[in-house]
């Protein structure tokens, strides 16, 4: 087992270095000036040269990469050019906010996705099925930033029921589990939940339909089980796959949605990336992408190791 774990970690290491190299290089491939956020366009060429020197952007790229990687390996993702704040703390705060929003959105998506999926699958080819299927197709197809704007117009601008932006009356640093703060999360969470809802609903519908067609269901009926009892068996059979899909969707949402977080000014990783891109804040951009990418690498590594623990056949293969 130990050799398996060591092997998996050894496989992950070059991936991490590759991811780091990609993060570092991608932002350099885009045209523009890395100091644009602190150097106005009217700055002289001499001043620009001086600052390039002071920030180390005049050094060869390989040297810059090695320095950056060395610091990143020690938990130092550098300092944001635009704000002067440590990138690590900026990213950490943003990841926390995105995690909170993503979990709520996934929970909403899972609940309604399962509801629509079970109803559609259980009452196949009925009006209920068509309505639930339509909702799930809409969920998958509708551009969520557009939906976000519509929700804001209706529930914030017109009705004034819910706030359209921000993480709470005092910002995310003073977040508390009370209605004053939770109400700020309602619209972005609903907006973000729509895609997972659609995907889960379609998956669950297919699973329910497939399960209902299996012989053991006929057997259950033959043994005199009522619909409610049969339903419980169906749920139990569908649950693992539905949960797995939910996990996958949560993973996607954890990357943060640039569009949704920008529409709602939600201070997560998407909003942070948006700011970093528009300010061309290279250290912040590199740090955020690196953390998100490594998050998935580590998650995959954990999954691989845990699968090996639970299923020894994987280790052998």
């Amino acid at each position: 087992m130990l050799s398996y774990v060591v092997r998996r970690v050894a496989y992950a290491l070059p991936i991490m270095v590759g991811v780091s190299l990609l993060c570092f290089m991608l932002v350099y491939l885009a045209p523009g000036d890395p100091l644009v956020s602190i150097l106005p366009p009217d700055a002289s060429a001499e001043l620009q040269r001086q600052l390039m020197q002071l920030y180390g952007f005049d050094r060869p790229l390989p040297e810059q990469f090695v320095n950056w990687l060395w610091r990143a390996a020690h938990g130092d993702l550098g300092t944001s050019i635009a704000t002067g704040r440590p990138v690590a703390s900026e990213v950490l705060n943003a990841v926390g906010n995105t995690l909170m929003l993503a979990c709520v959105a996934t929970a909403i998506g899972f609940f309604f996705g399962c509801l629509f999926g079970f109803v559609a699958g259980y009452y196949r080819h009925s009006a209920l099925d068509r309505a639930a299927s339509l909702l799930s197709v809409v969920g998958v197809s509708v551009p969520h930033y557009w939906l976000g704007m519509v929700l804001v117009i209706v529930f914030s601008a017109k009705l004034g029921w819910l706030p359209p932006t921000g993480a709470g009356p005092g910002g995310s640093s003073s977040w508390a589990p009370d209605w004053a703060h939770v109400r700020h999360m309602v619209l972005p969470a609903i907006t973000m939940s729509v895609i997972p809802m659609g995907i889960i609903a379609r998956t669950v519908r297919a699973l329910v339909a497939e399960t209902l067609a299996q012989e053991f269901v006929v057997g259950l009926r033959a043994r005199g089980l009522r619909d409610a009892g049969i339903f419980l068996h169906v749920v139990r059979n569908c649950a693992p796959t539905a949960l797995a899909v939910m996990g996958l969707q949560l993973g996607y949402l954890l990357g943060g949605s640039i569009l949704v977080e920008t529409v709602f000014s939600w201070p997560g990783t998407g909003f942070l990336l948006n700011s970093a891109i528009f300010q061309r804040d290279l250290p912040l951009l590199q740090g955020t992408i690196l953390v998100l990418a490594l998050f998935f690498v580590v998650l995959n590594l954990l999954v691989d190791i845990l699968q090996g623990v639970f299923d020894p056949r994987i280790e052998r293969s």
Binding site: G96, L99, M100, C103, G168, P169, G170, G171, S173, S174, W175, A176, P177, D178, A180, H181, P240, T241, L243, A244, V245, M246, G247, L248, L250, G251, L254, L299, N300, L302, V303, D304, L306, Q307, F310, D311, I314
Partner: peptide, 27 residues
């Protein structure tokens, strides 16, 4: 195997969520 991997992903994310729920005083 794919399903197990996906379930583990959601489990790990859930654990991360548990560490998140930190409430701070309002202003």
């Amino acid at each position: 195997m794919q399903q197990t991997r996906i379930r583990m992903t959601s489990l790990a994310a859930g654990l991360a969520l548990a560490g998140l729920v930190a409430a701070l005083p309002g202003a």
